[in-house]
């Protein structure tokens, strides 16, 4: 699914974009615990999180996750925006809560894992 499509489905605001608007993800993972993101994700996933510190972006960077969605209307910190820009990670925010954000993406066909369609 294209990152631009994700933003649309979530009524989200794109805080920071990358050059390529054709950026795609295979799946999604949702957690406020970066420990779990680091331990469970093994494909090109979008990260949905309510964690409001720079480690959310760091984790995405380490995991090669191209997009981070902040749920519950959280405003990213300056450090988060700076790092996302620097590393070419798309950062978006949605007013939706975690459950609805995940539900909408799942209903539109974005799976939990690439091979579990």
């Amino acid at each position: 699914m294209k990152v631009t499509e994700i933003a649309e489905i979530l009524n989200a605001q794109i805080v920071c974009e990358t050059e390529s608007d054709s950026l795609e993800v295979d799946s999604a993972f949702a957690s406020d615990m970066m420990s779990d993101v680091l331990a469970y994700v093994n494909d090109r996933s979008v990260l949905l999180t309510g964690l409001l510190n720079v480690q959310a972006i760091r984790t995405a960077e380490m995991m090669d996750m191209p997009c981070v969605v902040l749920v519950r209307g959280k405003t990213p910190t300056g450090e988060m925006i700076e790092l996302a820009k620097e590393r070419g990670i798309v950062l978006i925010t949605t007013e939706l809560r975690m459950y609805e954000a995940c539900g909408r993406l799942f209903a539109k066909g974005l799976p939990a894992r690439r091979d579990s369609k």
């Binding site: 615990m33 970066m34 420990s35 779990d36 480690q55």
Partner: peptide
Amino acid sequence: IRSLGFGAGMGLPN
């Protein structure tokens, strides 16, 4: 530490 997103006991095994 848990409120910062860490401390699940997953790091060393990972």
